[in-house]
Structures are given as structure tokens and as C-alpha cells.
Amino acid sequence: MLRILSLASGYAKLRVLKSVSLHVNPGEIVAVIGANGAGKTTLLRTIAGLVRPWSGDIVFSGASLPGIPAHVVASRGCVLVPEGRQVFAPMTVEENLFLGAYTRFRKRAGASVKSELRRIFELFPVLEQRMGQFAGTLSGGEQQMLAIGRALMAKPSFIMLDEPSMGLAPLVVKEILATISALRVSGCTILVVEQNSRAVLGIADRGYVMETGSIVLEGTAQELLNNTDVQRAYLGKEYQRINE
């Protein structure tokens, strides 16, 4: 589905990604975990076409992505749910969702957009209740659902989620993660970037650990949970042990 080979990128003179290689097989949930500033968000933004890669290759569904503008990447089925939701606060929930189908509107695909909207309301019934409400008035969890819903309006085959649990209450995090698992069942392939490592490794098949722009560990979710470095650095296990 997605294959990244030795990708380097950054902003102006600042190199963020050093030489990152990873792959996501169709139907997988792959997690990228790491501390603040490791380059996780830059990785997703580079795949989405928002940041230009310096070197290396990104192959999505057999086609090389570097150089392709972000809206084309999205229309090919590779969408990003950005960090911090980024919903359009002064617009209604419905308008936000329609914007997600922006790339398809031009093809006069009205009916299919409507059916997509119904599917999303089935997935997130709360969005239907709030349909006419301004997005800015939603709770954090609802906004996250809206952001995922908006991404689904593009009928993607591949969704990238940037810190979907950020700023959410533990119970809401659980709900969002359950939704992500449900997306996979509906046929989506998922790449999710998280700081909440324990939670995301609970739903992921495989994972990569990023540290200052490089991947230092990869393996199945279980292998990463077994790794004592991961336990100490990202799962806070040592902290617990001291308390006990």
C-alpha cells in the first residue's frame, strides 16, 4: 500500500527526517510512536505532500508521490487527519463534512457524497445530532470524530491520523481508538502517529519507534510492548516500578 524508502525532509534549513524507511501493507494498522520532536508529524505531512521531501522515495499504491501536490495525493485516496483536529470552527458540522469531499464535488458525484455522509453518520451518530451546530462548539472528542468523518468523505483507501488522542479524556480516547479499529474493518489501511504509545499499540498490528528523525526500532506491536527500552521511554513502566 505505502512504501517509504530512506526519506529525508524538513523545513528550510532544518532537517527533521534523516533517513526513514517504513511500509504499510494493505489492511494493516501501523503505529509510529516517539517523543515530541521526533519527526512523526513531519513524516505524515511529507507523505501527504504538505512538506516537500529532500531525498528518498514514497510509493503509494504503486505510484511515486514526491512532487505531487497535496490535493492530488488526497484525491488518490491518501488522506491526513491532522494533529489538533483542525476543524473549521465557524462552519457547521455538515459543512465541514462536505468540505472533506471537496475533491469529488467537481465530478458532480452528489449522490455518492450523500451516501458517504449517511455512512459517516452511522459510524458517528453524534455528528448527525450536531449536524447544524458550529464545529467550534463541539467537545474535543466530537471534533476528533468530525475530523475523521471529514477525512472519510474523500473515500480514502489509506488514512493517516496524527495524534488522534491528543487532549482527550481517557474514555474518549478509548472510543476514538475503537473507531480506528472499525475503520480497518471497513477496508481502510491506517497509519497512526501517537504519543499515547500503550493505547495505540493495543490496536496496531505493527509499529515503528522514532527518535530524533530516525527509526530506531520496528516490530509487531507485541514485540514493541515487550521491548524494555520502549517500556521505559514510552510506556512509563520504570516510573510505575519505582512507585510500587
Partner: peptide, 17 residues
């Protein structure tokens, strides 16, 4: 092809470590 992708990923993580 897939194997060489897996190998380069794992080689790079090993080198980093």
C-alpha cells in the same frame, strides 16, 4: 522486492541502535 524493503528498514534501525 518486499523483502529488500523489510531488510533496509531493519538494517537502518539496527544501524541507528
Amino acid at each position: 522486492d518486499e523483502l529488500s524493503q523489510l531488510q533496509i528498514e531493519r538494517l537502518q534501525t539496527t544501524l541507528n541502535r
